[in-house]
């Protein structure tokens, strides 16, 4: 394992910036991963997690799919985004979230836009030291300070950052980096202790075993879903800020003879999401709330055997009405008969 002084992190990021588009947490109005400015590493002092998750770097809020040119006939032109992104400071929950999106976007037909960015991207993780009160990652088998879903993992050990390679891509990155020193056994012990302390700070819990048993039997309990849906205002905060929500819409635009097709985030909380001209299967709010909870904790696991939630807690902390999914999941009324 390697290490680097926190005060030298800017030198390391600068090195990487020669080869990659480096993104790091910043707070220009909102905390998100933004193109690193070449100097600022003060985020090490204040950064808990981004509000806008790093999925934004791979599945952006909007992206052009292709240009539509018209001459004698139509010609479609795809401009592939081959940017080599290096995202510094990814939290373990968000790294796992990308691994979950990968599953869906690789299954069957491959989503080339997303997968191309993933292929060209490097995730440099940064272990948490102060999880939020809304975090419940540990209930989903995610360690807040450890990750196998990143390429390189950084952990805070006081004045220095401990650096571990995780993937071959990460190994190559570190091999080509200068200014790193070798970590000592004492450093590693320090990191281990810090990680354990962080793990214990995640106090919000859900019981995934119990949830699995209860979701399907509770599915048709309309009264229950109407009750939990009552205070939801049907905005898109919880889904747009969710690191695992990947649903999208496709839209064309044209002006002055130019046209292009785009895709943009979409959200199952919106009534228009499933609206067809003549009918809408999820017109009612409780059906949409039920869909949201079930997609993450029931349907996605039925298809891919993994829960589509990493316990990052954004949906709880950012919700305008404090609609708390952990409370909902702990009050599911029905249980399968033994």
């Amino acid at each position: 394992m390697k290490k680097i002084k926190k005060s030298d992190l800017n030198k390391l990021l600068s090195q990487w910036q020669q080869k990659y588009s480096v993104f790091a947490p910043s707070n220009h109005g909102v905390v998100k991963m933004t193109a690193w400015d070449g100097k600022d590493t003060t985020f090490l002092d204040w950064y808990r997690n981004t509000v806008v998750p790093p999925k934004n770097n791979f599945l952006p809020g909007m992206e052009k799919m292709f240009d539509i040119k018209k001459d004698a006939g139509y010609k479609l032109e795809v401009t592939a985004d081959d940017t080599k992104q290096l995202i510094f400071g990814v939290r373990p929950c968000d790294a796992r979230a990308l691994a979950l999106i990968d599953v869906n976007f690789k299954d069957g037909y491959e989503d080339t836009y997303y997968l191309n960015r993933r292929k060209n991207g490097l995730l440099v993780g940064l272990g948490c030291t102060s999880p939020c009160a809304s975090c419940f990652c540990t209930s989903l088998n995610i360690h807040p300070a450890e990750s196998q879903d990143v390429d390189v993992m950084f952990n805070d050990i006081g004045e220095e950052l401990l650096i571990a390679e995780v993937t071959d891509k990460g190994k190559e990155l570190l091999a080509a980096s200068s200014g790193l020193s070798d970590a000592t056994a004492a450093d590693e012990a320090k990191a281990k202790e810090a990680k354990e302390a962080t793990f214990k700070k995640v106090t919000r819990k859900i019981n995934t075993g119990e949830i699995k048993e209860r979701l399907m039997p509770s599915f048709e309990n309309e009264e229950y879903w109407k009750n939990v849906a009552a205070k939801c205002v049907s905005c898109g905060i919880c889904t747009f800020l969710c690191p695992t929500c990947y649903c999208f819409d496709i839209n064309d635009e044209q002006s002055k003879g130019e046209a292009a097709r785009f895709r943009n985030w979409d959200c199952c909380s919106f009534a228009v999401y499933t609206k067809m001209p003549m009918e809408n299967p999820r017109e009612e709010k409780w059906r949409r709330v039920r869909q949201k909870v079930n997609h993450k904790y029931n349907f996605f696991p039925m298809i891919y055997e993994q829960i589509a939630c990493t316990g990052c807690g954004r949906c709880i902390r950012q919700c305008p009405v404090n609609w708390d999914i952990t409370q909902v999941l702990s009050t599911l009324p029905e249980k399968a008969k033994a």
């Binding site: 869906n104 819409d249 979409d266 199952c268 999401y273 869909q291």
Partner: peptide, 19 residues
Amino acid sequence: LEKRMKCGIGKCGRCNIGD
């Protein structure tokens, strides 16, 4: 069945009935 199938390939999320 008819649903609002936007992507057609199981990615965009809106045409599910359960799983």
